[in-house]
Write a protein that binds this DNA or RNA. Structure first.
Lengths: 181, 181
DNA sequence: TTATAGTTTCAATAATTTCTGAAATTACAC
DNA sequence: GTGTAATTTCAGAAATTATTGAAACTATAA
């Protein structure tokens, strides 16, 4: 498969951004390629298009599958494995949020929970525990919120998002909006 | 400054998680230390407590300041620079979200905007552009939403969060809740 | 079975990132 | 100004992470 200028730009960008997003360059490119591909691709096509080794593609796809950003499928009469990226952009959004939460938030939440069970031995520990409690409460609240909101249908979520800050008015909350900084 | 077992655990955890969060181990530890410290610390104290080189602390603090997760202050009669982490947990949350958006989302949004201006030359490009449009729309919507909601006071935001999915009921939206997968 | 296409593993190495110590710079007190 | 404490810079060393190619493994067709 040949990349057109437009698709190449997209793929290269995902490669560059990969490191900021916590995946590596080649995995970022592989995902971008799957995302824009009109049909599932097999590992050789991916390796050939992007110019990576076959083994790198194998490992990269494993990683993408662990993020649930790629799935495996087979075509009748072809024993190679094909990969595709989930189509529904809302599903991708949710999946990504779930995986990030599992990897980047849960471990910390769990560490905080443990730390809060300890009996502080010094003033310093007492203070530190207070800070940890604040952190724990915020993260806990945000994740519970996320859990609940995630169960809404994409349509409702979209309406809610489009409502934005106006939700506050509609609900009759009183609030002073913050200035731009 | 000596770390107690409780604070050491917290600091080491932030070091470990650092790489998943896009900062490195030592910067993660530095932030954790500042976060739980009851008073501002100078660079030597940080270096000594965590066992890093003085120059590493200098670079680390620069990075934390670029994330607005640390700020500089001076004490009368002491010419060293002291650092502290913002106290308000909501402010931290907002700051982090803003910085992540700037670094991890804006560049992609901008690439997508450019790509969507191009006239597709082939079927493949046409399809790819369609996918990019979906991605762009979702990100755009989410960031506009975030902009607006961010202007709410922490109190309102907290009420809203505690409302969770019930917001949908209160607003009279009809929606079927999604099962747990 | 066996042959072989397809996939994965893994040790070696390439590339990148992190961290340090020494030198340079800056800021302040005298 | 000069001297010194504090900070930053930066080149190289150390550590980590990414990538490859060859070998091992697996599944299927003949």
């Amino acid at each position: 498969m040949e990349l057109t200028p437009l698709t190449e730009r997209f793929v290269l960008h995902f490669g560059e951004m990969g490191s900021r997003w916590g995946i590596n360059r080649t995995v970022g490119q592989m995902y971008a390629l799957l995302f824009i591909s009109p049909q599932p691709l097999n590992a050789d096509e991916i390796a050939e298009t992007l110019g990576f080794s076959r083994s790198n593609v194998s490992m990269g796809m494993k990683e993408l599958m662990s993020w649930r950003l790629a799935r495996l499928l087979h075509r009748p009469g072809d024993r190679r494995e094909y990969f595709e990226a989930p189509k529904d952009i809302w599903e991708i959004f949710r999946t990504l949020a779930e995986e990030k939460r599992k990897r980047e938030i849960e471990p910390t939440l769990s560490m905080l929970r443990d730390a809060l069970l300890e009996v502080p031995q010094t003033d310093a520990e007492h203070h530190a525990q207070g800070r940890m409690r604040e952190m724990h409460e915020l993260i806990e609240m945000a994740t519970v919120w996320f859990d609940e909101v995630q169960r809404l249908s994409p349509e409702t979520l979209e309406s809610l998002m489009r409502l934005g800050a106006k939700v506050q008015k509609v609900l009759g909350f009183t609030d002073k909006l913050r200035g731009k900084d």
